[in-house]
């Protein structure tokens, strides 16, 4: 295949929409063609950055106006009755923060492609033109990945993140979301969830991943992964949820990390309280 054809198919390749044989051809070509590698890296960076643009959220005015309009239309039509199903209570206190399924999917896409890039640059090292700053970031990402890899080493399924995806993007996302509350999950899926918990830029998605991991809290690898993610977690909200997770399974091995949190002066107050409570529990 020539370079033009490869470059024309990169968008479908990225979406996982190429037939397996064609995708294999693209992968083979990318291994040996610096020009197309560059194109591929640029495309991925463009799409991942685009995906990370802030999601604008409407003001409460919109919802108020909508229900006022709906009510007046119903009155005009002579209808009545409360249309809403009672929301199903969820077992975790932060469940109200969990986004709708569609949003989880969208965010999980970002997560998967983001990690895909990190791994991609491992497989195909960036060209010499890469600036020092980017190289430093890459090195940091690699170190984090290596750390996570150790945590799930025997699971050794981080390869699920790799660019060598033959499944369409949509199907891969559905897999992540489908693991919510699922009891029987294979190790590859657990590794995906742990990777999401450790690397996803969205607080909501990390919480969703943790929610899904509850069903597997008895798995030592899962607890290891949560313990590893706890100190590097930047959101107090997610930290507290992680601490609750570890406390709920009375994970004795979490004690050093929890003690560390209670001692560090810059620990958020809610996190400190949660850590102290968890230490008493485990």
């Amino acid at each position: 295949m020539n370079c033009q054809r490869i470059q024309d198919s990169l968008l479908d390749f990225e979406a996982g929409a190429l037939p397996a044989a064609e995708a294999e051809g693209v992968r083979e070509h990318l291994k040996s063609c610096p020009d197309c590698q560059r194109r591929w890296a640029d495309l991925q960076e463009t799409l991942v950055t685009l995906d990370r643009l802030p999601q604008p959220a409407p003001s409460p005015r919109l919802r108020n106006n909508f229900y006022a309009m709906l009510e007046s239309q119903m009155e005009a039509a002579g209808e009545s009755g409360n249309p809403f199903h009672a929301p199903r209570p969820s077992e975790h206190w932060y469940s109200f923060l969990l986004p709708h399924r569609a949003l989880v999917q969208a965010a999980a896409a970002v997560a998967l492609f983001g990690v895909g890039i990190a791994l991609g640059s491992r497989v195909w090292p960036p060209s010499d033109k890469t600036s020092g700053e980017t190289a430093a970031q890459l090195a940091a990402t690699r170190a984090e990945l290596a750390q996570l890899r150790n945590q799930v080493d025997s699971v050794n399924q981080l390869v699920t993140y790799s660019l060598a995806q033959t499944q369409p993007a949509q199907a891969r996302l559905q897999n992540v979301v489908a693991t919510l509350g699922q009891k029987k999950t294979d190790e590859a899926e657990l590794a995906t969830l742990l990777g999401t918990l450790a690397f996803d830029p969205s607080t909501n998605v990390r919480l969703s991943a943790l929610e899904a991991l509850y069903a597997h809290a008895d798995n030592t690898k899962v607890r290891q992964g949560v313990r590893a993610a706890l100190p590097r977690e930047s959101s107090p909200l997610v930290q507290v949820a992680m601490i609750d997770f570890l406390a709920s399974v009375r994970d004795r091995e979490a004690a050093p990390a929890l003690e560390q949190l209670t001692r560090t002066p810059r620990t958020d107050e809610a996190v400190r309280t949660a850590a102290q409570r968890a230490l008493a529990q485990i």
């Binding site: 604008p56 909508f66 709906l70 119903m74 209808e79 809403f84 199903h85």
Partner: peptide, 24 residues
């Protein structure tokens, strides 16, 4: 088919993304 009030459920599902579409 007449259960007009259920439009509320569709609104809850879709108004966010639709709003994002218009803002962009």
């Amino acid at each position: 088919d007449g259960q007009v009030a259920r439009l509320g459920e569709l609104f809850e599902r879709h108004h966010g993304p639709l709003y994002g579409f218009f803002v962009r």
